[in-house]
Design a protein around this nucleic acid. Structure first.
Lengths: 341, 341
DNA sequence: CCAAATCTGATGTACGTAAATCAAAATCTA
DNA sequence: TAGATTTTGATTTACGTACATCAGATTTGG
């Protein structure tokens, strides 16, 4: 049987009340007594029954998700997953609130973060815009003892407790190798479509992509990055233009969102050119394009996993508990037309 | 505030005791009263607080994992993950026991399953040997109300509640497409190394592999399958032999275990031949081979995820609760040298 | 050594549910 | 309608922890 507070009391030769004072760091315990109790805790291997503790406390975990107000499929999917988590709230004892902030706007994000500092929720998950002032705001929260995890996009040099997202450098490298291998030993140009170089995940993907390309596929040259602002219309225009002008393009790497526009451009301008195309994020549009052969591979991050992981980590940090590291690692999913879920 | 049993009692106009009788399907409640209570439960949207219920019951979940006594890295890894779950037992209220049975031995497996039927654990997870008598034994357990999940390898036509493993047909198809694409438009022969055609996962991988190869890569022909019994020594001998005799081999698909032997054979016989190689299961050996270029891609199933998923599902089934489907889907991981964890 | 301050023990209630007991009420049977 | 039977209510204890209160013990300062 698992040891309880009574066992600690017996082992340490003190009363239940004293054990409670030590466990919940309440005042009024002499130093030596405290040590005696802590020793007993270690020796009998006591671990607090979190379920019982939460029951007694009537505890819930007020959590806040800060998401960018972006109108693309990926962010919509992320939003859906947060809503699904809200639906599970009663069972998981969470109390989740979602805040929308303008995308790519550090100032707005900082303002929201600073306000949350006063409110002191049990935990905060945010899709970070990678700017020094955001990093400082997050670090203030962390210093204040509020658990913070970054979601999807990380925050350079910050003290955030955890990052629930994929390794984007690895994603870029993987895309490069897949593209390089799929193209056999061909010579030609590669077009790269990004959202914005202001977000860290896109920068990192590009960095990984370029480094593997340079090192291992010297016959393929990367054209200047097209920035489509994750917007389908803009992406369509820019990609169509590039395809018209550059006849040497034999491959495309789309590392951001807005793939709806990319796919349309490909169908209009390149049906006959048999391009090899790799894109990020599995959505209804990219899925259809993968199945009909317009896209050759999709790299994906599972938004549901990211949200669930963020919640688990925030709850664990709020209770000062350990997490199962391997469970919280967000994988880079690679989908070909054969292994779609 | 979330509704409690007291709220049901008030809403239905009955006593707490009656509510308890209905909730825990105890006898002694008239049909009309039962209906009245059930209606109230639905109307106020009551959901049992599982944590509180488990606390009151002092409940633990006795679970049994049945694993084959195979001496390969994958099964060792699976074993490690079960042990890790045992270490978490106090927190998760599980009480996990592992049983080893001879591999590929339906009779032994049936004997063990039948005995567990008497013992009535809260749930059973097994790596199934795909045979009718095993299926029948599992179905008896299910009929008896014992939750059963298959792990890694599924059981054809059985009533098991869940399968915690990858879609092996999709895995084979994916391997075929990767291999076909990596080989560009080359012409040649593909060697396939399997463990045994007696286990369903290997059969399915081959099936998926062969179908995509035939349909989409007609220039590549599949050689007769080499069965290495998941044994490194045997695999080494057979593969080395094949490489010596067949000079037309340009690709290898290893769909089972025993990759240690395969890798040794490749290094001895094929350093100069630049074969394209795809293997299953990420182990220290395959990881090293991927990094040094001997292997081009590894398809993997995450044993840790499989074990944790099996436990979650068994617990949920034991309590009659729903699971988060997406969370329990075991993905096919594709590793290139760039996205290794 | 006494009073004041500090520390410790004993005890009770609460969280939401399970499970048991016993009494009372309702229903059924003859 | 009496008596047996079934159904329902009321109440209590328990699970492991949190938290509060008050009394008693020990330590500290002067």
């Amino acid at each position: 049987m698992r040891p309880t507070v009574h066992d600690i009391a017996a082992a340490a030769g003190v009363s239940l009340a004293t054990v409670d004072r030590v466990l919940n760091q309440r005042p009024g315990v002499r130093h030596v007594t405290r040590e005696k109790v802590e020793k007993a805790i270690r020796e009998i291997g006591y671990v607090r029954d979190v379920a019982a503790a939460n029951l007694a406390k009537g505890r819930t975990y007020p959590l806040v998700f800060i998401l960018p107000a972006s109108d693309n499929s990926f962010m919509h999917g992320l939003n859906d997953e947060v809503r699904a988590a809200v639906a599970r709230s009663p069972v998981e004892r969470t109390d989740i609130r979602t805040l929308e902030v303008p995308a790519f706007d550090p100032t707005a994000l900082v303002r929201v973060l600073d306000e949350l500092g006063k409110e002191r929720p049990s935990g905060i998950a945010l899709v970070a815009t990678d700017a020094p002032e955001v990093r400082d705001a997050v670090d203030r929260l962390v210093q204040d003892g509020i658990p913070v995890v970054t979601l999807v996009s990380d925050l350079t040099g910050s003290q955030r407790h955890h990052y629930a997202g994929v390794d984007n450098i690895a994603a870029g490298r993987t895309a490069a190798r897949l593209l390089g291998r799929f193209l056999g030993g061909a010579t030609g140009e590669i077009a790269v479509l990004a959202g914005s170089m202001l977000v860290r995940d896109h920068r990192e993907r590009l960095e990984g992509f370029a480094s593997v390309m340079a090192a291992e596929f010297p016959l393929l040259s990367i054209l200047p990055v097209i920035e489509g602002r994750d917007d389908p219309e803009m992406a369509h225009m820019l990609v169509a233009d590039a395809l018209s002008k550059k006849s040497g393009i034999i491959g495309v790497y789309s590392l951001g969102a807005g793939n709806r526009g990319l796919i349309r451009a490909l169908k209009e301008k390149a049906v006959d050119r048999s391009l090899t195309v790799i894109a990020h994020e599995l959505t209804t549009h990219t899925r259809a394009a993968l199945l009909d052969g317009t896209i050759d591979a999709i790299l994906n991050q599972d938004a549901g996993h990211e949200v669930r992981s963020a919640i688990r980590v925030l709850k664990a940090k709020a209770d000062g508990l350990a997490v199962i590291e391997a469970q919280e690692r967000i994988r880079l999913d690679i989908f070909l037309k054969d292994n779609l879920p």
